[in-house]
Design a protein around this nucleic acid. Structure first.
Length: 128
RNA sequence: CCAGACGGCUGGACGGCCGCUGUCUCCGUAAGGGGGUAGAGGAAAGUCCGGGCUCCACGGGAAUACGGUGCCGGCUAACCGCCGGCGGGGGCGACCCUAGGGACAGUGCCACAGAAAACAAACCGCCCGCGCAAGAGUUCGACUCCCGCGGGGAAGGGCGAAACGGUGCGGUAAGAGCGCACCGCGCCCCUGGCAACAGGGGUGGCACGGUAAACCCCACCGGGAGCAAGACCGAAUAGGGGCGGCUGCCCUCUGUCUUCGGACAGGGGGCGGGGACAUUCCCGUCCCGCCGCCCGGGUUGGUCGCGAGAGGCGUGCCGCGAGGUACGUCCCAGAGGAAUGGCCGUCCAACGCCGCAAGGCGCGGACAGAACCCGGCUUACAGGCCGUCUGGCAAG
């Protein structure tokens, strides 16, 4: 990751093809947890930090060891990734850092309902 | 067919849609897009051993300390691993278990119980001698019992995880390896075996308790830290400090001297000079006293390390086996808040319920996710399959 995305792409692409980026550094996760808005649902907890720019949202995923062993955490995170990917492809979010936190129920939640959880959480924090 | 022992394999299948990471390729000036291909395990786990690799340390040898290993032989790069034997224990058997060197080098410990726990000793009991007031028996005898004293002895009882060999016969007052036979033990010899050890013979006379996952002794082995190892790039000709050397020409200012031409010292500017903008040349822009050597400090990011290997598969040969070897063939995950997936459908098994059954309904895949790489060990694991062998039952 070289340079700030704000400087790298001065003209924001507002089309629906813009893919969400990823959060990769620990500091970014901590900032979202400390300053972002929180929206818990049954299947997922969302932390959203407005960046104040017009770039596609950046996504991060957190599943703690409390949820289970490595296999269970992997499956939980992958379902969240896929649900968020499909959801944001239909309704792109602009100018937010989003952290999705997996819970015990994430794994057994019916997929369409999990997507609905994410949509409602995005609505709660005003990202839609 | 039933019960069991051992070894090995497997541990969902197929299809559709949408994605992810690596790589190859095509289109495109580029941004980007299309297509192909590969993509978790037997334990990837625990991080318990052994190595490769990397950095650090290091003249050679010996001794000591510390840590590890511990029947014998072999395999291996190596091992606390594996294979084949041996001894001991268990099982009718197939087979299983076993840290299994040394207790005449020394020290320590052996709880409770018990008289006594290691060098001898004696609680009850046994035997002999002497005494015998009282008591009992009496064949009226200091005859016996009881009791007291002295002695013999270690067979019996009792304690214990363990008591100075075991069983039997002889022997004796009672006894004792006191004598004998067998067993056990020690020593010597012979035979077989590379060896651990086994078998046999002789001999000694019971002397040698146990404990070394107690200290210890003996033999052998062992530098330290780890991929967050380590290397490079970049920010960075920036910025801080030290040492040494060089500083040409022109203009100008100040000071001193002056033979009035100027000279010397210090400061400023310009040119020359050096450098950055990928590279060479030209132009342009920008930066800077110059050059060389040296010292100290920090964070984040990127690239490498990073997968052709003690490699997989097949066949032949050698070996009882672990394994070795030759030939052929294949290229087989490389992430980095971390890809290897998400959803749907059909099916095959399990599990639960209903049913005599055929079947129906529900639930829905065991343990578990690579992080530098190998060889092991240990632990977890629904179920399924294959092979060899043992003991029964039945039939032939």
């Amino acid at each position: 990751m070289t340079g700030d995305p704000i400087l790298a792409a001065p003209l924001p692409d507002l089309s629906a093809h813009a893919k969400p980026g990823r959060l990769k550094q620990r500091a970014e996760f901590l900032r979202a947890a400390a300053k972002g808005r929180k929206a818990p649902t049954h299947g997922v907890v969302l932390q959203a930090l407005p960046r104040g720019d017009a770039l596609p949202a950046r996504l991060g995923f957190t599943v703690t060891k409390k949820v289970g062993n490595a296999v269970i955490r992997n499956r939980t995170r992958r379902r969240l990734k896929e649900a968020a990917r499909l959801e944001l492809a239909e309704r792109p979010v602009i100018g937010f850092d989003l952290v999705l936190i997996g819970r015990d129920h994430t794994r057994g939640r019916p997929f369409l309902i999990l997507r609905d959880d994410i949509r409602r959480a995005l609505g709660k924090v005003g990202a839609l």
